[in-house]
């Protein structure tokens, strides 16, 4: 590194510094402030209400649903997207030609708007759709978005569709970094073809798998568009999420004080969950001697 140049350094970083003051520090303080008031977005006055917003939020069935649904989405989305992404990556990696073309093709769903995928899914699952008509033909009649479990599953499936190609790209680059010689050495050591994936590929894949898993877990804390568009959080509260709940309280019910309290709870839940997940993934890697 060269000699010090404070003026230039601060000048060049100033866009970020100004941005973080206006759109990070001020909002952050403001959220804490709002969360202890009963302000409703339009009233000129407000009262301090202490921690009663938090008390109310902690007892609200909507908030409970948002909290638990995050983990329900996790249980559906994370294994599904990981299995699909690893499957796609391993499959494409084994091809001799058109590897790039296939990867680009699988990546395309990532470019979709949640609104558009919601429309398509709504169409494919409408009462008159060929899928439902065929199912009724064999005596199965499912109201996909009106049943709690299937609604949850459908949203998870849309997300898995969207992210599979993206994660497959990350995993492919992990696979490409594994040397052919490792496989040859393993073959000499007597590792059978069937064991190859579990004993060599998976351990060497751990770093890219770790990246995709962290990304995938992160996704479940920010679900909004698909739920807003497809179910509005329903049926009942079956697909309610943190973002959905905060949006509803702040901008439909105009309870900005209360919604700020919910937002604070949401970020606490997110922070703690992500921290625990990271630790668990690291322990998992260390236990198996992959790190």
């Amino acid at each position: 590194m060269e000699q010090r140049n404070n003026k230039l350094g601060w000048l060049f970083t100033s866009p970020y510094l100004i941005y973080s003051v206006i759109f990070f520090f001020i909002p952050l303080i403001w959220t804490f402030f709002l969360s202890v008031t009963d302000w409703n977005l339009i009233k000129p006055t407000f009262n301090f209400v202490g921690i009663s917003n938090f008390k109310e939020a902690l007892q609200s069935p909507n908030v409970h649903a948002a909290f638990w649904n995050t983990y329900r989405f996790m249980l559906i989305f994370v294994p599904l997207v990981t299995a699909l992404a690893v499957g796609v990556a391993v499959l494409v990696h084994g091809l001799h030609r058109f590897k790039g073309l296939f990867l680009i093709g699988f990546f395309l769903p990532y470019l979709s708007s949640g609104v558009v995928s919601a429309l398509i899914v709504k169409g494919l699952l409408s009462y008159t759709s060929p899928i439902n008509t065929a199912l009724r033909g064999i005596g199965i009649n499912v109201d996909w978005l009106g049943t709690p479990f299937t609604a949850l599953f459908i949203v998870g499936l849309i997300l898995a569709w969207k992210f599979t190609g993206y994660y497959a790209l990350i995993i492919t680059s992990g696979l490409e970094s594994i040397d052919k010689e490792v496989y040859e050495a393993a073959a000499i050591d007597g590792v059978k073809d069937g064991q190859r994936f579990w004993r060599i590929t998976l351990p060497l894949l751990y770093p890219s798998l770790y990246t995709t898993l962290i990304l995938a877990f992160g996704v479940t804390f920010g679900i909004f568009t698909e739920v807003y568009q497809l179910t509005g959080g329903g049926p009942g509260n079956a697909t309610n999420t943190w973002q959905m709940e905060i949006f509803k309280q702040a901008f439909s019910n105009l309870q900005s004080g209360y919604a700020s309290a919910v937002a604070l709870l949401a970020s606490i839940a997110t922070f703690i969950s992500i921290y625990i997940i990271r630790k668990l993934l690291e322990v998992w890697g260390k236990r198996n001697g992959w790190v």
Partner: peptide
Amino acid sequence: PAIILLIP
């Protein structure tokens, strides 16, 4: 978590 900043 950016959601906390949305309302302000």
